[in-house]
Computed example of a mutant assay.
Amino acid sequence: MLFDANTRLIKVIATIALLYVLYKEFTNQVFEAVIGFSLIILLYFVLLWARETWLSGVKYAVISLLILAIELILNDVYGITDAALLWPLVWILATVYDKYKYLSSILALLTIVVFICISRPVTFTAPLILVGLFIVVLIRKIWKNAYRMKELHLQEINKAHQELKEAHAELQEATMNSMKYAALEERIRLAREIHDGLGHQLTSLIIQLQALEIMLPDEPKKASEVTTQLLQIARQAMAEVRFSVREWSSDEMGLGIIALKGLVSQIQGRSPIKFNFVQESKISEWPNETSIVLYRTLQESLTNILRHSNATSVTIHLQEVNDEIILKVSDNGDYVNEVPLKAGFGLNGMIERCQQHGGTCTFTSAKPHGLCIEITLPIEKRSHHDIHNP
């Protein structure tokens, strides 16, 4: 907008200057000469104020040649040697250089030649100044276009950055929803196990307690044996309760380890591969960003195994050591150390994601064959209570 305002101001100043030159310098000429100079001024008005969409290279060439032709006619017929009205033409041709490079240069050169031909006395100072004017206007035009391109590029970068931020936020939200779904599915699975396992044992315990009540008066010895069985059932039920409580309390936010387990359970449900999730240490609550990185990298690891490994079993090891989370995913697939690992978009994405959060992601061969992916992430902040190893 600033450049547009400046351009309009320059056009107004140029128009006033042309009218002033016509009135001051050429009104004392013969009538035919005044008509010729007026026609030149009119042609300049067309160049200055016509819409850019209307003007074209051909029209610039025709109008410029008409101006030069009138100047030559006035010089030849009336002996007029004042070429002051050629100066604006050099300026105008320089302003359209970016659109019509060769045409603008040729017409400007032709204008300078005509200027030399009709000017008296002959001097090279004015033509050099004309060349300098063309170069100065051209440099200003180039700088103006560069500034516009810079502003446009900056706007595009800002727009792309905003779109990237929105896409990242949407991706984070989608990941969070996926993790919540996985955690919910894992909780439903645990609830089902409690219902099926603990419910069955409690039912059996109730039935045998009812039988024990009948046996006590008549068969005290057999009742003692039944009591032992009942204690065993009760201990099994208690073990089920403790395991389930540990599973439920492993992640109070529902976005950490329970989401990882839920992801493994989801994939296990649609794959013949046997998955084994091993928690090797106490686990603390993780920040959402850390949980998302672990979830996404585990998801990509398991997806890569399903697509390329031909594995029959996968083991996931998770532990916290020295304020770091270590996640290892090992399979018994086809990969052997002799074959160079070609990291595609997914594996490279895992590496970059871990590095962005101050961690690492490495790939080694498993024995005797298969791939081991080890992800290490720092724990940004720990909760006040840890979850004991099951």
Rank of each mutant, 00 (worst) to 15 (best):
M1K: 09
R8P: 00
A14K: 13
A14S: 15
L18V: 02
L22C: 12
F26T: 06
I35R: 11
G36C: 06
F37R: 14
L39E: 15
L39D: 15
I40E: 12
F45N: 09
V46I: 15
K59V: 07
I67C: 04
A69I: 09
A69S: 15
E71Q: 15
L74P: 01
A84I: 11
A84P: 00
A84S: 13
L86F: 06
L93K: 04
I106D: 05
L107C: 02
T111Y: 01
V114G: 00
V114T: 00
V122G: 04
A126E: 13
L128C: 08
I129F: 09
I135H: 02
W143A: 12
K144T: 12
R148S: 10
M149K: 10
L152S: 07
L152N: 05
H153P: 02
E156T: 15
K159T: 09
L164E: 15
K165V: 10
E166I: 14
A169S: 13
E173V: 13
S178D: 07
S178K: 07
Y181I: 10
A183C: 01
L184S: 12
L184N: 11
E185N: 14
R187Q: 13
I188C: 13
H195Q: 14
H195T: 07
D196V: 05
H200Q: 15
Q210G: 09
I214H: 14
A223S: 07
T228V: 15
T228C: 13
L231W: 15
Q232S: 12
I233F: 11
A234K: 09
M238C: 13
A239Y: 11
E240S: 14
V241T: 06
F243Q: 12
F243N: 11
V245M: 14
D251Y: 02
G254C: 04
L255F: 03
I258Y: 00
A259Q: 07
L260D: 05
Q268A: 12
G269T: 05
K274S: 10
K274R: 13
K274I: 04
Q279K: 08
E289H: 01
I292W: 01
R296F: 07
T297P: 00
L302I: 04
T303P: 03
H308D: 03
S309F: 01
T312W: 06
S313V: 05
V314G: 03
H317V: 02
Q319F: 00
E320V: 01
D323W: 02
G333W: 04
D334T: 14
Y335L: 11
E352Y: 10
Q355Y: 11
G359W: 00
G359C: 03
K367P: 01
K367L: 10
P368M: 15
G370V: 04
I375L: 03
R382Q: 08
